[in-house]
Design a protein around this nucleic acid. Structure first.
Length: 558
RNA sequence: GCGCCAGUAGCUCAGGUGGAAAGAGCAACGGCCUUCUAAGCCGUGGGUCAGGGGUUCGAAUCCCUUCUGGCGCGCCA
């Protein structure tokens, strides 16, 4: 539609120039947009406003000149000058009929514009270290990342979903020590929980399982590092299994798992250090190796390799290596999803990657703000240390996967997200998930009714005449046909939240339409009923496609 | 102190990458079910877009600045 309008306008401007009424060429900066207010038509051009300066004429006068020279094709019903000098176009019903037919014929392809051209995209998300069950905060990350991946897949990108975790560091060691302490306790032996140890009940569960499996075999040599590695590995395995299970409940899976230890063993981490050293970006003091902050524009030096025995790298160094690795693997776009608390670190990592001669332009960071839970109008206090957090599993138990996914997406990623448990559990219209799903269920119900009355759609929908559709119905179609544009915008701007907000509006338009007695889809008037069923079917398909993009189901009954 | 994010209706938040008279849901009040699902709809009231400058034909949107809130500034990740 946009392209059509632009070409019509440009032709009119050229004719005006030939006639000596205008001096300048059609400006590239001009745009054609769908106005917010439907009263302003289906497409609006600001070309006259943009040309005003060059032409040294008032925008409205320019708009009038152009309008008088317009030659409208049959798809365009009218063009009018309005406001400060906008030229508004209204499309003919036949145009919308055509769009509906195209949607019906093309199916999924229509709703999900193929803009990816098989370009390679990697989405790294969740990346929670396996030290405990996933929390509500992880949930936002997981759903955001998975949905970005789904949207890219749906629009024709080749997507890799990747989970990166640290298994070489201090926290994992602490995890092993915590399990060992519980293990010894289970055997009735003296044991000291490390100072910052993991207190959660799940640690005890893992320890019990180890008693069952190994008996007392690990107790006598409990102080040795070899047994510690056994405890650590067992904990990692058990917790990872738990994380995977939680993800599955939310329809989330990963293609690739990458970990810190592999990068250390593979030599990539050493390569980073050598590369930085060669560029004079390494400092050595206090027994540690530091990344120099000043030449990279960072506020201060950061430790790359710890002091003390073992010379272990900090999490930072493998992270630099990992990002270089991602770029080396040839992704056209690398999307990192992480919480606001990691932002400073990410900037440091990118600075180092850049300093090592890599182009960081393909890397996009999606940084989300924190999640709070509200129950009974009060914030639920959460603390990992005290193990008073609410796990993602508990949240799914309580409200279901569809609601969890929708709520996490129903906010721009850089806004704080307040998850209202009372609202989430309510099976009522104020719950946006049910509001959208209900629209689909109602439509499904209409088709069940139509079947009963022998009014089903013919196998070949293209035979149906859409002329009986009313202006209100064309309005509904216009809204519906906007979905592909919304999807495109959501992918290009990496803002998945646009889709659920759009779906809520669409569902609202439908509910309003449906509730008017005069709009009964199935009636005695066969031609009208068929046209309405056609619209209803395409609407159902659009809603299903939109919800599917979010990983939310479109139920036939509620 | 420095960095990042935010500040829009009583509350929770949208406002495609500058456009026309600021929106939705909730909360409040009043209505609508012999009908394809009332998990729905209709109506009423509600705003100094945090404050102040600037750019522009045009600013909630871009720039500067002040204030307020969140997060970070570990040899944790």
């Amino acid at each position: 539609m946009k392209d059509l309008i632009v070409s019509i306008l440009n032709a009119a401007i050229e004719r005006s120039r030939a006639a000596g009424q205008l001096a300048t060429a059609p400006p590239a900066a001009a745009s054609v947009e769908a106005p917010k207010d439907p009263a302003h038509g289906d497409a609006a051009s600001n070309v006259a406003l943009v040309m005003a300066r060059g032409e040294k004429k008032p925008p409205r006068a320019i708009a009038e000149i152009i309008r008088a020279r317009l030659e409208l094709p049959p798809e365009v019903a009218e063009a009018a000058v309005a406001g400060a000098g906008f030229i508004n176009f209204r499309m003919a019903p036949a145009f919308w009929h055509g769009e509906l037919r195209r949607a019906a014929a093309e199916g999924e392809r229509f709703w999900r514009p193929q803009i990816g051209a098989a370009r390679k995209v990697q989405v790294e998300f969740l990346s929670a270290n396996p030290t405990g069950p996933l929390t509500v905060g992880h949930g936002r990350n997981a759903v955001l990342g998975d949905t970005l991946a789904r949207m890219h897949e749906a629009t024709g990108f080749a997507v890799t979903r990747e989970y990166y975790f640290n298994n070489g560091g201090r926290q994992m060691k602490l995890l092993g020590e915590s399990v060992r302490a519980r293990y010894l306790e289970e055997l009735g032996r003296p044991a000291a929980m490390p100072e910052d140890g993991y207190q959660g009940e799940y640690i005890r569960d893992i320890a019990r399982a180890m008693v069952q499996r190994h008996g007392e075999a690990l107790a006598d040599a409990a102080g040795e590092s070899k047994t510690l590695e056994i405890f650590r590995a067992a904990a990692e395995e058990a917790i990872f299994a738990d994380i995977r299970r939680t993800c599955e409940r939310l329809g989330i899976r990963f293609d690739v798992y990458t970990n810190e230890l592999d990068l250390i063993r593979g030599g990539q981490v050493d390569a980073v250090i050598e590369g930085l050293r060669a560029r004079g970006l390494i400092a050595e003091y206090d027994g540690a190796l530091w990344l120099k902050g000043e030449p990279l524009g960072l506020p201060k030096d950061r430790v790359l390799v710890r002091s003390g025995p073992g010379r272990e790298p900090t999490y930072r160094t493998p992270d630099i290596a990992y990002h270089i690795e991602k770029l080396r693997r040839g992704f056209d776009s690398v999307i990192d999803v992480f919480g606001a608390d990691h932002i400073a670190e990410h900037q440091g990592v990118l600075a180092a990657v850049k300093a090592l001669g890599h182009d960081v332009a393909p890397i996009h960071a999606i940084i989300y703000q924190f999640v709070t839970l509200t129950r009974g109008g009060e914030k639920v206090k959460m603390s990992t240390r005290k193990a008073t957090y609410v796990t993602l599993d508990q949240l799914v138990d309580e409200v279901g996967a569809d609601v969890v996914r929708f709520f996490f997406l129903f906010r721009k990623h850089d806004s704080h997200l307040d998850f209202d448990l009372d609202l989430a559990k309510r099976q009522a219209p104020e719950n946006p998930v049910f509001y959208v799903q209900y629209a689909h269920a109602r439509l499904a119900s209409v088709f069940r009714e139509a079947e009963k009355k022998g009014m089903g759609l013919p196998a070949d929908r293209s035979l149906i005449d859409l002329a009986p559709l009313s202006e209100e119905e064309i309005g509904l179609a216009r809204k519906l046909i906007g979905l592909p544009g919304v999807v495109r915008g959501a992918v290009e701007s990496l803002e998945p939240h646009r889709v659920p907000f759009y779906l809520l509006e669409l569902a609202g338009d439908f509910h309003r339409y449906y509730n008017k007695p005069s709009n009964r889809i199935i009636s005695e008037q066969r031609e009208l009923s068929l046209a309405r069923l056609f619209l209803a079917r395409v609407l159902m398909e659009g809603i299903t496609s939109g919800l599917g993009l979010l990983g939310v189901s479109a139920p036939d009954r509620m």
